[in-house]
Write a protein that binds this DNA or RNA. Structure first.
Lengths: 93, 93
DNA sequence: TGCCTATGCAACAATCTTGTTGCATAGTGC
DNA sequence: GCACTATGCAACAAGATTGTTGCATAGGCA
């Protein structure tokens, strides 16, 4: 839970999640190009690579190799667990 | 949102929130004594003071002076906003 | 006044985070 | 084999976080 919270506490990582929610199974370069062009985030490819690693570590993203490209898919289970866990009691009616 | 996520990404801070959810308007020393004794967290008073500052900064805690003691109360609105905002779309049925 | 209580602030260290650059690796196709 | 594409890894720097210790302040009470 600590790590899931930290993972989504980063705007760029939320953009990546948004992008994968729109279109699953994208490569690092696809995500990089789309997020940078649409939101004008001026970071390097490696910065994105690390963000993807963070998201993979906490299980929000799942990876599958296809030749030399690695396809990234969203797994919303950790986010659903976050909503359903400790946080849920602060829901408003 | 970034800051609220970071704020609750800390176990000790969540314990503080839990403690204030049980009993509102507690002083620093009350919170400190209860959380340490109940959860065996071996941190100093100043560490708690800083955690309380972080929670105040993001609006989860509100403060009111009463003589020399500062009473801390919970404001769940930022947490409710978190649940209702970007995160909400990942809710499971 | 002098002491006790409750708190804040400043300085410091250790660790984590986030970004960069440069190089390495591993398929793919000519 | 050679270049191109897609990615990973290591080293480094800047800044934030989290903790500590020591001292300061401000109100309450004998």
């Amino acid at each position: 839970m600590n790590r899931v919270c930290r993972a989504i506490a980063e705007p760029t990582r939320r953009r990546i999640i948004d992008e994968l929610a729109l279109r699953d199974r994208q490569s690092l370069f696809e995500i990089y190009a789309r997020v940078v062009s649409e939101h004008g985030i001026g970071h390097s490819r490696q910065a994105f690579s690390r963000h993807l690693s963070v998201l993979e570590d906490v299980g929000i993203i799942e990876m599958a190799w296809q030749g030399t490209t690695k396809l990234h898919s969203l797994n919303t289970a950790p986010l659903a667990r976050l909503l359903d866990g400790w946080l849920s009691r602060f829901e408003e009616p």
